[in-house]
Design a protein around this nucleic acid. Structure first.
Lengths: 202, 202
DNA sequence: GCATAAAATGACTGGCCGGTCAGTTCATTG
DNA sequence: CAATGAACTGACCGGCCAGTCATTTTATGC
């Protein structure tokens, strides 16, 4: 119980440091200092650096998945669900700048290199994509979306959110623009069945 | 002249190693060995590891920009230009798997951390985005595309190509699907002015 | 206030790697 | 066949850092 609290403290500190320096450049001494502990203490709670990183990411992804399922379940129809899926992701990016930075900068490594956590990450990420794909599939069944590969389409939506926030790193999509609306506009028009009567989008 | 050839050899070797191991994990000894040289020799041609990496990336980005401008200039209308922009990017991703891996995995770091080459990368990347944005703007002026922020829209197109190939790292978009068509379908429907008569897309 | 355990510490180690440079090889030229 | 210099080499250095563990500090129970 104290242990869990300590763990959470360490993970919070880890996110702070990983976000500032990137996975490779971050040192355990830094993370320990940020948590107000000594390096050795970290090893009482986690196996190694990799485990700390993965847990720090996993915690947030699990939270995102839970919230995404909730809001999608509450939305009345397919376009509203897609909108909700976008909103919850944008919300996370806006409210947790530290996680955002980690997610955006380390995503490539998480996907590409056969580290121990690549498998874990892939698995969790695909679960979220499948949640979204179920909505896309429903839309196609109902005729609101034009036919296409549901999983690939769902994945594109998730990645588009990442893209917008990545772009901010390059100095675009400044405050003036509304990422949520921009993504929904582009994606919804892109996938909806223009022959069918419009339901939720413009 | 010999020097240029050597440089190119080193950059090719560097791309091979960086793509296999990632920027941080790649060592100069490895790159030198891959080029059939000793580590010290690298320093006769480049200042340091960072410079090798940047040159290896830059070479390809410049080539991409040149080709993209060519094919876009030859295309007859806006949708054809967008299609060409997608095609030339997919082409690069397909033919140069090494560059693709580097681009996908290190992009986040290139964007996020204030390294020496972040500035260079950003500059070159935005130049390419502006090339595309000019086409988007033309489409909006002509009425084929609905109004919107041209640069952000252009950037999304470029990032969507990256997304599709990123997805391949996660085990999707396998051989069966045609990335080029998928992206064009989604993007073109997403941006075109549905009130206006359709020009190039479905 | 003592005994015992639980939690935390931080100096230390072993390995790694970017970068250096004194020395070697090789090609060219007179 | 020197003599010259350009190209190349690789052992070495200094610094860094993940992970360890003997020791110290703090908490708990009696």
């Amino acid at each position: 119980m104290l242990a869990e609290f300590r763990q959470a403290e360490i993970l919070a500190a880890a996110r702070r440091v990983f976000s500032k320096r990137g996975y490779e450049a971050a040192t355990l001494d830094e993370i320990a200092a940020a948590a107000g502990l000594a390096k050795g203490t970290l090893y009482l709670y986690f196996d190694n650096k990799e485990a700390i990183f993965w847990e720090a990411v996993r915690e947030r992804l699990l939270g995102l998945r839970r919230r995404a399922r909730e809001v999608m379940a509450q939305a009345p129809d397919v376009p509203a669900r897609l909108r909700a899926a976008i909103a919850v992701r944008c919300e996370l990016m806006r409210t947790d700048a530290e996680f955002m930075r980690i997610y955006l900068t380390e995503f490539g490594h998480l996907c590409a290199h056969p580290t121990r956590f690549r498998k874990n990450f892939r698995e969790l990420y695909l679960e979220m994509a499948h949640d979204l794909a179920a909505v896309v599939e429903q839309g196609m069944r109902e005729g609101a979306l034009r036919p296409g590969p549901p999983l690939e389409t769902a994945l594109m939506l998730a990645l588009m959110v990442r893209d917008v926030f990545t772009s901010r790193f390059l100095g675009l999509f400044e405050e003036q623009s509304d990422p949520e609306q921009f993504i929904f506009d582009l994606f919804w028009r892109g996938v909806r069945n223009h022959a069918a009567p419009a339901a939720g989008g413009s």
